[in-house]
């Protein structure tokens, strides 16, 4: 009996509910650019995480004075930098770090922003007012400066610490967006009905309202991911990101500030630049396709 039920519900699942997923898939197939982006993205992610798993980070960041500025060769696929370190290894581990930071920041800031926005929008009135003023406060803080101060104070920071400090300053946009949607949603009859049926506010917020704005949430998070991937590179480029002992795309890029490197040693900075460009564009293309899929008027498929 139980088995039977399970079967039935899973059948129903595949037949009915993923109409949303199906629309998405159609949109992706129709938009070739997004499809290629998605495949490329998956390939890069799998490759980067797979290869970095078998790589020895210590070995890569070890300075080797006999192999300074080597051009691409059999031994070093992408040559070496001014410390004789393998650029290819740095590229892979740097990409992994950027991706990890992007994912963690997106997820954490998403969680905080969604909760904050839903609560502010759902309750409205004074609660909304107080919460939005707190949000305004966070928004006027000079983000880059605070991160730089943090980075100079904390001597040895990790990917997680880096992500947390970014999260603290990047949840406001999502919160605003979700709030505005929650304000609309809470006026609908099904929310009122849940109230008269004795459902607690907490349950209404997360079980009734949130599923109904899930498409907006998915799209926003995807588009945010694109910008969050570039966060770390930007700071490392300025010299406030990871130290040189931690490979980073931004560090590789910053070598290009040396005119000699910029002109004659392209293998140090071009791969990193291309990687950042490709990653951000790919995520954005997928995100745009998702966004179109959620709006029937903009759909292509």
């Amino acid at each position: 009996m139980e088995m039977n039920n399970m079967n039935m519900s899973s059948q129903q699942d595949s037949a009915k509910s993923p109409s949303g997923l199906k629309i998405l898939w159609r949109e992706l197939v129709r938009d070739k650019l997004a499809l290629v982006s998605l495949i490329l993205l998956i390939l890069i992610i799998v490759f980067v995480y797979g290869v970095s798993f078998i790589m020895d980070e210590k070995e890569i960041v070890k300075v080797d004075l006999f192999a300074i500025h080597e051009p691409p060769s059999e031994e070093f696929i992408l040559g070496t930098d001014y410390g004789g370190r393998d650029v290819f290894g740095q590229l892979i581990i740097g990409t992994r770090n950027s991706l990890s930071i992007g994912f963690i920041v997106t997820l954490l800031s998403g969680m905080i922003g969604i909760t904050f926005g839903l609560i502010a929008g759902f309750f409205g009135g004074h609660i909304d007012n107080v919460l939005m003023r707190i949000l305004d406060f966070f928004q006027v803080l000079p983000f880059i400066m605070l991160v730089i101060v943090f980075v100079s104070i904390v001597p040895n920071y990790t990917i997680l610490a880096f992500s947390l400090i970014f999260t603290a300053f990047s949840w406001m946009g999502i919160a605003r967006l979700i709030r505005s949607k929650a304000l609309q949603e809470k006026e609908l009859d099904y929310v009122q009905a849940s109230r008269t049926l004795g459902t607690s506010n907490f349950k209404i917020i997360f079980r009734e309202v949130m599923p109904n704005i899930s498409s907006l949430i998915i799209v926003t998070l995807t588009l945010n991911l694109a910008s969050n991937i570039g966060l770390e590179s930007g700071l490392s480029f300025l010299g406030f990101g990871f130290p040189e002992s931690t490979p980073s795309l931004g560090t590789l890029l910053s070598y290009a500030t040396n005119p000699q490197t910029l002109e004659h040693r392209w293998w140090i900075w071009v791969p990193a630049a291309v990687m950042i460009l490709v990653l951000m564009l790919a995520v954005r293309n997928v995100g745009e396709a998702l966004r179109r899929a959620t709006d029937a008027r903009q759909r292509r498929g």
């Binding site: 009859d189 099904y190 008269t196 049926l197 004795g198 607690s200 599923p211 109904n212 899930s214």
Partner: peptide
Amino acid sequence: RDIQMIFQDPYSSLNPRKRVRDIIAEPLRN
């Protein structure tokens, strides 16, 4: 529990993301 309401608009008063089972069971679960 003893006072319930039937809403005017049958299109917006049911949560579009929930199955009939969950909709009708909502008050029972509470």
